[in-house]
Amino acid sequence: MIEEAIHPKDIYLRSDRFPHIWCPGCGLGIVLKSYVDAISKLDIPLDHHVLVSGIGCTARLPGYANVDSYHTTHGRAIPFATGLKIVNPELQVTVISGDGDLFNIGGNHIIHAARRNMDILVVCVNNFNYGMTGGQHGATTPEGARTSTTPYGNIEHSFNLPYIMASLGASYVARWTSLHVRQLTKSIMKAMKMKGFSFIEVISPCPPNFGKYNKFNDGLSQMEFFYENSVLDNNADLSEAYIDFSGKRPLIVGEFVQRIRPSYIELERDLIKRAMEEP
């Protein structure tokens, strides 16, 4: 019944680089799976897909997908992707990076990309800490959580990512956990077909860092937390959708925003047309 074989998704991967660098129980492989699953099902030519990332564990993801990929500097994936997309709108530009990369060091860029309604998809894998550097606290670390730099518990208020992105006018905003694999795949497919700025937050376990400091002994125990506390609510009041790990509040997931608003590329092409027609 069991035999060694080639994984059907290997054609979408740089399989010579496997096994990947991520720790056992890390949710990033699942996000990669969802991404390749989505691009394999969509009618967008594979050659048009471009993956861009900043720096961090999540940012290593594009290096494993068999598409054009760019591993840029810390926090700057979105402006890099902006340049790519404006020059060649045919490209399906997806930024997959971590919470630290996108919302701490790169926070300025993501709010402006959302404001412009730039035609890119941003998948933010949120593990509530800086995984690659050893689990330091960041803007998404829940209040009270322990990390390697908040040994007495985090006293700072944390970002509520879907709430921020929805307030900035993003065309599509969703949140899933890495347990919601099928929903995540469908969400990526839907977001790639949307015009304008799409944002998907994926809540993901980080067993050796955030997990270890917060009584999740392995990836599985954090996944179990997602399983028990996730509540699907597409119409959720996003101001209440922040996350803590007390288990006292639901972990709200769903597709919160889907709206049609002129996208940057549409508006820019129109501007160029007007300027070129000027005598």
């Binding site: 700057r76 992707a81 902006t82 340049g83 404006i86 020059v87 860029h109």
Partner: peptide, 11 residues
């Protein structure tokens, strides 16, 4: 970052 991205798209 944007001009490096743009150049990588051929600009």
């Amino acid at each position: 970052a944007a001009i490096v991205g743009a150049s990588n798209a051929g600009a």
